[in-house]
Design a protein around this nucleic acid. Structure first.
Length: 494
RNA sequence: GUCCCCAUCGUCUAGCCCGGCCUAGGACACCGCCCUUUCACGGCGAUAACGCGGGUUCGAAUCCCGCUGGGGACGCCA
């Protein structure tokens, strides 16, 4: 099992079987994004597969943009997906350690104060996109003597603390990526990034690395958008004299136009709540997300949680971005829907029933009594449904007396004699000594024979009259599902 | 612009590392047929891809180079 994971050597595996520690570190600045959810899932799968520890770390250092609602949406989303974690941290609780770490880097000579006013720095950054070439550092600041730096700081001049990237020495920063393989970049191409802002607060790079080191994260598994940041992070780990974690980057989830999924551009398709509200089974959505950028390599698609856990490995993660196939008209990826229908059919009915009940409740519909009967109905109608919501919409006639009549159903009833025959069937059903699928069928066929019509007229007519639809289970199963009282009432009312 | 990454059916992917078993496999969607006195499920079938150009080789989807295309990073955001 271990051989599939290059970053986990056999010796390490034998000696310290429990040392895998991974983390998911969202910033609470928006609702839970499906890309973030997928990152959580891959980390979680990795942790659980290796009997490791899953850590949730809230990266809330951006005080301006943090919201409680967003934090809540992260918890809600993860809980809905039935995902769990073993340890939880709040980055803001660890501010002092991050600052200390930054100053330790300064003390060691790997950082310097940059007194360039924020506005100028911003202009530099803005113009870096033009023909002037990449921005590496603000002029003059790297070379400031320690004395002058101390003097200006003591005088109260604001500054940002920047990492002094080793340059001009031909230094190459390299690391093996668990997904992308050997990575390397010349230090000459890495800019002097900030460690502390002018208000003294640590930046993301600083806080993140300090925490990853302090929490002894063994594997950093995150989106590919961090691949180029990793070179900076390695520099920080080194300056901190911390052991380097293993890195693995995940291909990004993109829109059909190839662009990174974003809340602004793509709206609700990026929020996990959309899929919850659409009536997805949590596990089926997890399953779908797993298939975006990962494959068990053996053609399996519909997989249980156990199967996912057993099959997961970084070796199965591919390198190209995955398109979430949605459109303006339909925000849901057809494959996600199909996968959901498969799980809906395969799920043990006793576990499915309570979920259906919740959906019915939300739609103001009562579940059926007794429980045994309710389960039987759920089981007989589910093979035509794709989401939980379908039980309340397409399946409304099974739970309520007010349901829409489709035009196709109306057409069946308008067939010659159809209404008369159905109205005649009603008292016969009512008079049955025992009401079962079989007895109802016998009564119906008897009537058809008496009147010399094809049984199909009555069978299809009944389904139409009873459910308002031409789509559905065997008409006799519909009889049994509705119960004698409703059947008689609906038939006589055509 | 600089740096990094990626490139198989419309979409998700297998195959690529360790060239030949690939006239490129599976799945979704679409279409057709079978099953079904309905519809769905299920079964069967059809359409559909190795971005381009050079090498290397007896042989390349697989290895090398270039091009093109796409993505990402380049903030006192995370």
């Amino acid at each position: 099992m271990c051989s599939a994971v290059p970053s986990c050597g056999p010796l390490q595996w034998i000696v310290t079987p429990n040392m895998v520690r991974v983390r998911f570190a969202p910033s609470p600045t928006g609702y839970l994004h499906i890309g973030s959810a997928r990152t959580f899932i891959f980390n979680w799968l990795y942790a659980r597969h290796h009997q490791g520890t899953m850590i949730l770390r809230i990266d809330d250092t951006d005080v301006e943009r943090n919201t409680d609602a967003s934090l809540q949406s992260i918890y809600d989303g993860l809980r809905w997906l039935e995902l769990d974690w073993d340890e939880e941290y709040r980055q803001s609780d660890r501010l002092e350690q991050h600052k200390l770490a930054a100053w330790a880097i300064f003390e060691a000579g790997h950082a310097y104060r940059d007194f360039t006013p924020a506005a100028n720095s911003g202009e530099e950054a803005a113009s870096a996109g033009s023909s002037k070439g990449p921005w590496l550092c603000n002029p003059g600041m790297r070379e400031l003597t320690l004395e002058e730096s101390e003097r200006r700081a003591a005088a109260g001049e604001p500054f940002v603390l920047r990492f002094r990237v080793p340059r001009g020495a031909g230094r190459t920063i390299a690391f093996p990526d668990g997904v992308y393989g050997e990575q390397s970049k010349s230090a000459d191409d890495v800019e002097d990034f900030a460690l502390l802002r002018s208000n003294g607060m640590p930046t993301y790079h600083m806080a993140s690395c300090a925490d990853d080191a302090a929490l002894r994260i063994s594997h950093i598994i995150r989106g590919q958008d961090h691949l180029s940041n990793t070179f900076k992070h390695i520099l920080i780990f080194e300056a901190l004299r911390a052991e380097l974690p293993n890195f693995a980057h995940l291909p990004l989830l993109v829109a059909p136009d190839g662009a990174k999924l974003s809340k602004r551009k793509h709206g609700p398709v990026v929020s996990v709540t959309t899929y919850r509200d659409a009536g997805f089974l949590p596990h089926s959505y997890v399953n779908f997300l797993c298939l975006l950028g990962w494959s068990p390599k053996d053609n399996r698609e519909q997989m249980s949680r156990r199967e996912l856990l057993d099959a997961f490995s970084l070796a199965g993660v591919n390198r190209s971005n995955a398109v979430v196939n949605f459109s303006e008209e339909d925000p849901i990826d057809p494959k996600a829907l199909w996968l959901n229908s498969q799980h809906l059919r395969a799920w043990p009915v006793e576990e499915l029933a309570p979920r259906v009940k919740l959906v019915l409740e939300a739609a103001g519909l009562p579940a059926l009594e007794p429980e045994e009967h309710f389960r039987w109905v759920v089981d007989t109608i589910r093979s035509r449904f794709f989401t939980l919501n379908d039980f309340a919409t397409k399946g409304r006639a099974y739970f309520a007396d007010d349901f829409p009549m489709q035009s196709e159903a109306l057409a069946k009833l308008d067939a010659p004699q159809a209404r008369e025959l159905l109205r005649e069937l009603a008292p016969r059903i009512a008079a049955l000594p025992e009401f079962t699928e079989a007895s109802a069928e016998a009564a119906l066929r008897e009537l058809a024979t008496e009147k010399g019509v094809k049984a199909g007229v009555l069978i299809n007519g009944s389904r139409a009259a009873l459910t308002g639809q031409t789509v559905g289970p065997s008409a006799f199963a519909v009889f049994a599902a509705l119960g004698r009282e409703r059947v008689v009432k609906r038939l006589s009312g055509v």
